[in-house]
């Protein structure tokens, strides 16, 4: 009985964001909230503190993006399935801005994204330190509605805006020795206060094989939900690799290096038994501590089956022909 009740309530929450915000005001002013806080109920009072904090610190400034090419059908998912923007911007893993899911949105204001430049290094004919605007200028922005599958067995559907990484890389003429692409997040503990702790070894690093990087699905995103990226989602420029677990999609990139050897990557370095270099979404290969066979789509109560390569097998399975994906997980 309890389950049925809560389920119908939950659906209301998902559909109406305005109600969500109004309820916050309602509860803040209501006697219930006051007495709850007085009793010292940790859950409620901590939530309230958090709401107030987000209300005070101005939300990470985002601005609308124009002239975006709408998502073509093969890179799209029905609009009705898109995760509400509030959820996608307030439930984040970005340890540089704190290890809880709510921390990144709260701490995003520390991150200053203007000016921003990206260093293109290594096996390219035209290396350089490129201002973000220069990097983007030659390419039209495209929308891509992708599933995002976190290694923690939850998922979202997000409308990204960006440029295929392959197009950007080609502009710098990779040499024949460019077999891998290595990425680095900004290292600046003032802007990314989580870097003051040793949650991971900083800066965050990720990498792709060159054919993965050149695949048309792989996106350098600069926006989501029609706007520029908020800090907590990896402003101003991040990677999106929809057939891999979310941690591969590195945020707030300052360095892209093409190289001959497989790069070191942060989670693999942290715990190579649990996080592989490839990290392709694979329902058959469990994380050592939990199953990857199912996932909870944010907004759902129960779990759904996880698809091989997160549903992008047609596009990318060929990249791994002949590889043992149990060993190269």
């Amino acid at each position: 009985m309890l389950i049925k009740k809560t389920q119908s309530i939950r659906e209301n929450e998902v559909t109406s964001q305005e109600d969500y915000l109004r309820r916050r005001d309602f509860l803040k002013s209501s006697a219930i909230a006051g007495s709850m806080a007085a009793v010292g109920l940790p859950l409620l009072s901590s939530c309230m503190a958090e709401q107030e904090a987000t209300a005070e610190s101005s939300p990470s400034p985002v601005s609308p993006l124009s002239n975006v090419i709408p998502a073509p059908p093969q890179y799209s998912i029905a609009k009705s399935k898109i995760t509400p923007e509030w959820e996608a911007t307030h439930y984040n893993n970005f340890y540089e801005l704190g290890t809880s899911k709510e921390d990144p949105a709260r701490n995003a204001h520390f991150l200053k994204t203007k000016p921003w430049s990206v260093a293109i290094e290594g096996e390219v004919e035209k290396p350089g330190q490129v201002p973000l605007e220069t990097l983007l200028r030659p390419h039209p922005l495209e929308e891509r509605i992708y599933r995002l599958r976190c290694v923690e067995a939850w998922s979202m559907v997000i409308p990204w805006i960006g440029i295929p990484l392959g197009q950007v890389l080609k502009q710098f003429n990779p040499t024949s020795k460019a077999r891998y692409v290595a990425f680095e997040t900004l290292y600046d503990p003032k802007q990314l206060p989580g870097q003051k702790t040793r949650a991971l070894s900083w800066p965050y690093r990720e990498g792709l094989r060159i054919d993965e990087a050149m695949n048309p699905l792989t996106l350098l995103a600069v926006g989501m939900y029609g706007n520029t990226l908020p800090g907590q989602n990896g402003a101003p420029i991040r990677l999106v690799v929809p057939w891999k677990y979310g941690f591969k999609s590195i945020k707030s990139i300052v360095k892209i290096r093409l190289q001959e050897d497989q790069p070191m990557t942060s989670w693999n370095d942290e715990n190579s038994r649990e996080y592989g270099f490839y990290a392709n979404v694979n329902p058959e290969v469990s994380h050592p501590r939990w199953s990857q066979a199912r996932e909870r789509r944010i907004g759902d109560w129960t779990k759904r089956p996880t698809l091989p390569f997160n549903g992008y097998a047609d596009e990318v399975a060929g990249l791994y022909a002949g590889m043992d994906l149990r060993r190269s997980f």
């Binding site: 309530i9 309820r23 509860l27 859950l43 409620l44 709401q51 439930y91 899911k101 109560w301």
Partner: peptide
């Protein structure tokens, strides 16, 4: 029962966040 009440209220007000489960 207060923690349970807190959970129920949290659910009704959306305070349990994006992943209530």
């Amino acid at each position: 029962m207060i923690p349970l009440l807190g959970l129920v209220l949290g659910l009704l007000t959306g305070r349990l966040g994006a992943e209530p489960v």
